[in-house]
Write a protein that binds this DNA or RNA. Structure first.
Lengths: 189, 189
DNA sequence: CAACAAAACTAACGTTTGTTAGTTTACTAT
DNA sequence: ATAGTAAACTAACAAACGTTAGTTTTGTTG
């Protein structure tokens, strides 16, 4: 499989943005890692900002699509939560660098990308919360402060990239099961 | 209570570093927010880097001291975990901006501060893990992958500042109890 | 082989940045 | 009052940044 120069720049930028931060990574840094000159990047991206926004919005779209799949799966709330955990684990493994940017680097998005990103993130979290509430209502989840449970789950899932980076040999399947046990074990009725 | 200019600059920088990131915050930004000129900051700090490192190392020291208090308290492992959760909640409430920097901005620390920060963080996490292992050994905690449970708890605690910023009116006492229920509920035997 | 487009290059621009040097103002202690 | 220190100021520099313009190389297509 041949990876286009554009994709290669994207992956490279994701790695550097993650390691040093968006602002601390210069176009010259990215170019050097690609063995080209900074000006050449502008044949593929119209700005540094576009590199960041394309990375973040792609991840946001993958999560949004994943949520749609889960909600139309017909599973009960607990089953849906399991599917969401698997979604996070898989995206984390497949896009470790890009997903790391979700934790902090999204603040460097400029308009109109920032608004779009926030909208998708907020929708995702709202739908996640809905599933938790439904589970509680159906008696499948024990009584708990929904927004604290939500924030707690999302924190762990958001941070997973960091743990996975230090444990790359951990089998995906096993990681999914452990995450489900850890995150759902405490809230199931 | 009079807050010295130095403390005022620290608090101001923490707020800006959190909002825009360390690299994206200029000395002129901090100065303007303090209604002084950038050069005047150098009467209180010898560099921008020193502002960041003083903020982060202070928080690291507070956590290290808290851990020491907990370990010498004589409580059983579950009691110690409860105390640690309370520690995180309190420090989060008292130092919301500075604690937010722990999530991502520490990567901008330069040597030798970076090494010192990492050492304290790693020690803290190792001692946290020890308590989990002891709890498991004493049959107080159910069987689980210790490092995944550890990472999951720390993720939630690290992210707490974000939730708290959107829910500043939530009573501290109640937040402590909810966090204990959510984080320990799933792992107690 | 000729023609064209894609993608690399060199060179330079205007800004912004952290920091320094030197000077002036404000406050405090004798 | 005066001396001395702390903390503000003005002015400037050298480096690094994102980006642009214009040119050359590379690769493909008729």
């Amino acid at each position: 499989m041949v990876r286009s120069r554009k994709e290669s720049i994207s992956a490279c930028a994701a790695r550097l943005f993650r390691k040093r931060g968006y602002q601390a990574t210069s176009m010259r840094d990215i170019a050097e890692a690609e063995s080209i000159k900074a000006a050449s990047i502008y044949n593929h991206f119209k700005s540094k900002q576009e590199i960041l926004s394309s990375l973040l919005l792609r991840m946001a779209r993958l999560f949004t699509q994943g949520m749609q799949t889960v909600k139309t799966s017909g599973a009960d709330p607990v089953g849906q939560l399991e599917q969401l955990i698997r979604l996070h684990v898989r995206l984390t493994i497949e896009h470790t660098d890009a997903i790391a940017l979700i934790a902090g680097e999204w603040i460097h998005l400029e308009e109109p990308h920032l608004q779009e990103y926030r909208r998708m993130r907020d929708s995702y979290e709202a739908e996640f919360k809905e599933i938790l509430n439904e589970g509680k209502q159906q008696g499948l989840l024990r009584d708990l402060a929904t927004d604290i449970a939500l924030f707690s789950m999302l924190s762990s899932l958001r941070w997973l990239y960091s743990w996975y980076s230090r444990n790359r040999d951990y089998p995906a399947e096993k990681l999914e099961e452990e995450m489900i046990a850890t995150l759902l074990g405490g809230i199931k009725a």
